[in-house]
Structures are given as C-alpha cells and as structure tokens.
C-alpha cells in the first residue's frame, strides 16, 4: 500500500461535514461544533509532521477531534458541574483495545442505541458523499441535506435543471452503491 499523504487544501471539502456531524451529535450546538471542527483542522496542521500515514486522513482527523471534544467537556465540567460525555469509540475503522471498558457501559437504553445507529448511519452517508466527485457532492448536498429548491441551485451554480438532474442521478446511483457496500453489508 502506498504511504498516505496529507492534503490540507482538500480537508474542508472532504471532511468538514463529516466531522461536523460527528461533533454536533455530541455537543448539540452548531457554533460550538464549528469551533471544534476548526480547532481540529488547525491542530492537525500543526502536527502534520507527526502523521505517519498509517491511518487514513479521516481516521487521523477524527482522533484529533475526539480529544478536542473531551477537552471541551472537561473545561465545561469544571465550570458547570456535570455534563455527559458521549463518545462512541466503537468506530469501525479504529478498534482500539484501550476503550473496551467504556464500551461495556452503554447499549442498554433502547433510545441511546437507536440514536447511536442513526449517528453511524449519518456518518456512513457523509463518508459516501465525500467520495463523490466534487460537483456531485455539492449538488446532492444542497438538494438533499440543505433542501434547496432546484431553481435556486441552478441559479447559484449556473447550470440548467436537466444538468442538475443528471448530476443528482449520478450522485444517487453512486451513493446507493457505496451504502450497499458499507452500510447494508
């Protein structure tokens, strides 16, 4: 396998929404989530030299983000008393022995389990979106997640409605394929 290299110029397009979703589930506040994602990217830039290319870029960024979220709760806890730290270490691509103890505690509450599954689903979709060609990802996100009107997207991106539907079709077809591989297994 070729050694993985970092490509910071692409980070925002590729990972910002993924990291943002990961964070917002845990801190429940858009502004704080944006701040944490920003801090994560900046911290990643500063420690780029220590990236050895063993993990994927995304996994590495998530590991930095996890620490940022924990720090955030630590700071908050000292000021406000107790707050729940909700970190799901059971990520598919980084099984790590150290966290096993913490995994035991969860999982009983059906709602929590449900929420966790929805979160994993969200991240799986986000990951599939980030693998699309840039234009497809952009149009699909605007239409599906932001719920923008066809007309408005066409104006903003200067494309015709039939262009838009061709792009949407390609995006959806790739996403179905990607989710079949990574979600429905």
């Amino acid at each position: 396998m070729p050694e993985r290299k970092l490509d910071p110029a692409q980070w925002v397009d590729r990972y910002a929404d993924y990291l943002f979703n990961y964070t917002i589930v845990r801190v429940n506040d858009r502004i704080i989530a944006e701040d944490l994602v920003q801090e994560t990217f900046l911290a990643a830039l500063k420690s780029a030299k220590s990236f050895k290319g063993k993990a994927s870029e995304r996994t590495w960024l998530i590991s930095i983000l996890k620490r940022k979220i924990i720090d955030y709760y630590r700071k908050n806890n000292s000021a406000k008393g107790k707050a729940e730290v909700k970190i799901n270490y059971n990520d598919t691509d980084e099984q790590n022995g150290e966290w096993l103890e913490e995994q035991v505690a969860d999982a009983f509450d059906i709602n929590a389990e449900d929420a966790m599954q929805n979160e994993e689903l969200g991240l799986a979709i986000q990951q599939c979106i980030s693998r699309l060609p840039e234009k497809q990802a952009e149009v699909f996100t605007k239409k599906t997640i932001e719920g923008m009107e066809t007309e408005d997207i066409c104006k903003e991106l200067n494309i015709t409605p039939s262009n838009l539907w061709v792009i949407i079709h390609r995006a959806r077809t790739s996403l179905i394929e990607c989710l079949e591989k990574n979600w429905f297994k």
Binding site: F20, N118, W183
Partner: peptide
C-alpha cells in the same frame, strides 16, 4: 436513510 440520519452541514 438520508432523512432518518438527520444530516447536518456546516454553513
């Protein structure tokens, strides 16, 4: 799935 996942985007 997309609506169930309640996806968010950063502005």
């Amino acid at each position: 799935l997309c609506s169930k996942a309640k996806l968010e985007v950063m502005n």
